[in-house]
Each structure stands twice: as C-alpha cells, then as structure tokens.
Amino acid sequence: MHIDDTDPAKVLAEEGLLRDLRSQMHRFASLQLGDPQLAEDAVQEALMGALKNARSFGGRAALKTWVFAILKNKIADTLRKRSRTVEANQLVGDGEESFDELFDERGYWHAAERPVHWADPESALHDKHFWRVFETCLDHLPGRQARVFMMREFIELESREICAAADITVSNLNVTLHRARLRLRECLENHWFLRGELSYGGSSR
C-alpha cells in the first residue's frame, strides 16, 4: 500500500481514486436530482465538506461511506429546497399502468409472476455482480418512479417531504412507490435471485 489510507486529504488527492469516486457520486446524485448541473453542485459541496472536515479514517471504504453520507445530506437539502419548482408534470403522469401482466383480472398473482422465496439476500450485498444488476434494474424504472423510490429509500425522506418536493399527493406517492417496488422486486428476482436458484439448486423439480 503506497499511500496513507488514513488521511482523507491524501486519499482524495490521489487522482484515479478521486476521479472514480466523483463519477460514482455524480451518477448517484444525477439519478436522484434528474439534473446534471445540480448533481455536480451537490458533489462539489460534498467533496469540499469532506476535505474541510478532514479527519482520520480507517481506510478508503470508510472514507467513501462518509463522503456518500455527506452527499446524501446535500441531495436531501436540494430536494427539499426545490419543492414545487420542477417536475410536477413529469411526476404525475405515467398514470395507467395496470400491471395486468402481474395480476389476473381478479387481482391475484399470475402463477408465473408470484414472488418466490429469496435465498440469502445478505450475501448478495457483498457481490459486486449483484450491484450491477441492482443498478440496471433501477435504470429500467420509469424516471419518476425511480426518483420517488430513491427519495424514499436512498435519501430517506419522509412521505410528506417527498410530496412537498415533488408536488404530488400522498395517494399519488403511495401508488408510485407500490409500482416501483413491484417492478424492482420482479427485476431483481428474475435477474438475480432466480438465476441463483437455477444454478445452485438442481434439486428443485
């Protein structure tokens, strides 16, 4: 290990690392803010904040966790401030998605779509391939669903904060989160958990 991993200023000064970190942060922020410029501002501020409050770290992973925590706060601030200025139209709109492909006409799961048991989700968290699947699934959500889902689950805003920020009603929020969760879990199941079953459990028939 040729650089001092415990000094954040030094770690952040390492060119490759900073570039990678920045691009991860930028991706994370633009997904949620839906605006590259706002995202860039948030990333800048978060990095400045990190450098200003430089203290010792137990290594790069800890530094990254900390920088992302700062970024999350910046994004939350931006989302709260932005309330009602943008995207009321974008947000209410993809209305009629009935999920007929998931549920039959009586509203029960189609047999093929019924959620299955997910084996060992904990270990997925340590698998970098899993995270690639997760990001791809997020990318496949309609934009408004993705943003509302991320406001709730990534930035951990409360319902009323999201409603204010996005200028939507609570019932609209609930519908949107329901849809996002239905889609995301289906995507993860099809592209991760079911594949695991298939490759590890030859005895299931």
Binding site: V116, H126, F134
Partner: peptide
C-alpha cells in the same frame, strides 16, 4: 414473499447509499 422482499429492498437501498456496490 412480497412483504419480505420489500423489506429486503430497503436494506439493499441503505447498503447502496453507504457505498456498497460502488466498486473500490
């Protein structure tokens, strides 16, 4: 299963925002 999975989704999301999955 759906009920359990959306709780798992929450755990996954929290882990993601802590930088898990963003490759070292």
């Amino acid at each position: 299963n759906f009920g359990r999975q959306i709780q798992t989704l929450r755990k996954i999301s929290r882990a993601y925002t802590l930088g898990a999955g963003m490759e070292e």
